[in-house]
Design a protein around this nucleic acid. Structure first.
Lengths: 334, 334
DNA sequence: TTGAAAGCGCTAACAA
DNA sequence: TTGTTAGCGCTTTCAA
């Protein structure tokens, strides 16, 4: 009456072979005589034997599970990456342990160590902020780590991203060409390297290229939430801003709705470019023009990269940059 | 140079006690003399010892990880539940292995067995469709299973939900009171019990109560996607529908945008009620009136319920129903 | 309060 | 091609 109690030993006995042989057929391994293999398989099916992955993990020192650290599953950007990660993971027979970090440095370190103690074979890390302490922990980790859609400025950790600087520069140039003078840069925390050193840099490069002078007052720092964006509308109007680059889709939706509710017409009176092309960006009205990132692929590629590292396969490039595009929808002029 | 190789044996030797004693302090267990405990703790810190969770799992037959089966992380409804699940899980020192099923019956069974072979201590299942085969697998599982935001008609599996029937009935009644005659019921697949036996039932009950006759042509079955909703607009106009109950927020956004783009005014010419109150519902314009479900709590409560079952604690009710509300926003008349 | 020792269910040499 | 056997790193009786 007790469930799940048949072990490799039971099927060995039942099929009159040794445990080693059963283990071999289980792992599709080496040379087992077809007849033997068949016999064992029959017993396995008959007894409904399922290998115990924990025992296997202890003996082989491989758990076929990878840890995935994500700021918040509820964030569509990261959730999309996670989907790509899981699909490729399961394609390669890995499971993923998902852990939310809220982008909190302490929590990130805590869950990292927790994952490591579970003996994951590798880790995919996502996060807007990567502290120096975290990098130190990465270094001492015995499991390989890949960053997905996340920036480590030191460049020491393998990662998959797009060129955020170029993408923002492209958007900004378009806005300039639409003869906008006052172009805002609305981002999440400027403590985050991705915003401060990459996106903002693209914005400045575009300005410089067209001899626009950089104006501090055009930089708006937020917590990336819809609400923060919504509340920003008044400030934007007061500063007579005419266009904006926004680094997060929910934030952009907030900015747009706030502006619209204040009687501003998008895109005629105010143009908006957003960054992630999540589903949301085409569900709002007007639809948001955006950098189009291959979100699913960023996740998928980073997981694929991780499998290569875990198997000691040769790697072409540690820092992978995927292609992006700029998609004109209805929040910018043509 | 090799990382992570210190075992319980090493700290035992170093602190001049037995492995058993180290194990005891590790587990905050029974009686260890404070001085001994301190001594061991010091060595643990000094050596940076981290217990190997796999070995622990094999010996104790507990992995402190639970499996979470989700249709798609990218779906904000389920992602919100997942967030609640993970928070409570980590509060109780569990990790979650997340597996996407795409609501595909074969895949559901596959990932379930995969999770079971990983010796998870329990499982939280989310899905719109629960096949009979799946219920059979649930029964034979040695790990307890709890459904979150998901309906098993047999009522044999513990679950956490809201009363979908009543909620839809409430919405429908409001629509009727706004003197709408032609009220559509727009749902995902009617093969899904939650739609066919619960939500549709609420719709019919409301109709009956007000002596409206049920009309087949007012029932629209979709795949729950934004696109399907968008494309539905024409049909809705042709059938002269004046209001709709929609069972999914993305779907509702699609319906609304489709209608709006066809020149229909929401809510004056067409009223819409949606079902999940995800963030999306207030980012679209007009904002969607909705059933307000405690999404995070549904996940949290189901995880809490699972911890109780895993610890053999007494359970008050196997089928818990959380409260819901109806929130009037701008897609319905006041 | 502590220690000795037997597993947990499997993999992986090493032999045969 | 198959079997024997020693672990993997921990928990948990049972004794002391």
């Amino acid at each position: 009456m007790d469930k799940q109690s048949v072990t490799i030993y039971d099927v060995a006995r039942e099929s009159k072979v040794s445990m080693a042989t059963v283990s071999r057929v289980l792992n599709g391994n080496s040379n087992v005589r077809p007849a033997t293999k068949q016999k064992v398989m029959d017993v396995i099916n008959k007894m409904e034997y399922r290998p115990n992955a924990v025992a296997r993990g202890l003996a082989s020192k491989k758990t076929t599970t990878v840890g995935v650290i994500i700021p918040d599953v509820t964030d569509e950007y990261f959730a999309s990456l996670a989907r790509g990660i899981d699909d490729i993971a399961s394609m390669y027979k890995y499971n993923i342990i998902l852990a939310n970090s809220d982008d909190n440095p302490d929590k990130q370190i805590k869950v990292l160590n927790n994952l490591l103690s579970k003996q994951v074979d590798g880790i995919i890390f996502m996060g807007n902020e990567i502290s120096d302490e975290l990098i130190i922990e990465f270094k001492r980790s015995n499991a390989p780590i890949v960053l997905a859609g996340s920036i480590d400025d030191s460049g020491s950790v393998p990662s998959v991203n797009i060129d955020y600087t170029d993408a923002v520069m492209d958007e900004t140039i378009q806005l300039i060409k639409h003869s906008n003078r006052k172009i805002a840069f609305i981002s999440g925390s400027l403590n985050q390297t991705i915003n401060k050193k990459y996106r903002l840099k693209g914005y400045r490069k575009a300005l410089k290229k067209y001899n626009y002078k950089f104006d501090d007052k055009m930089i708006f720092e937020t917590n990336s939430s819809y609400e923060d964006g919504y509340k920003l509308a008044n400030k934007l109007i007061n500063e007579k801003v005419k266009a904006a680059i926004v680094t997060n889709d929910e934030l952009a939706a907030g900015v747009m709705n706030g502006l619209t509710d204040s009687g501003i017409n998008i895109p005629n009176d105010f143009e908006i470019f957003t960054s992630n092309n999540t589903k949301l960006s085409k569900m709002v009205r007007p639809q948001l023009s955006s950098i189009t990132q291959p979100l699913y692929d960023i996740g998928a590629v980073s997981m694929r990269l991780l499998t290569k590292i875990m198997n000691n396969e040769p790697i072409n490039e540690k820092q992978v940059l995927l292609n992006y595009d700029i998609l004109q929808r209805d929040s910018t002029k043509v």
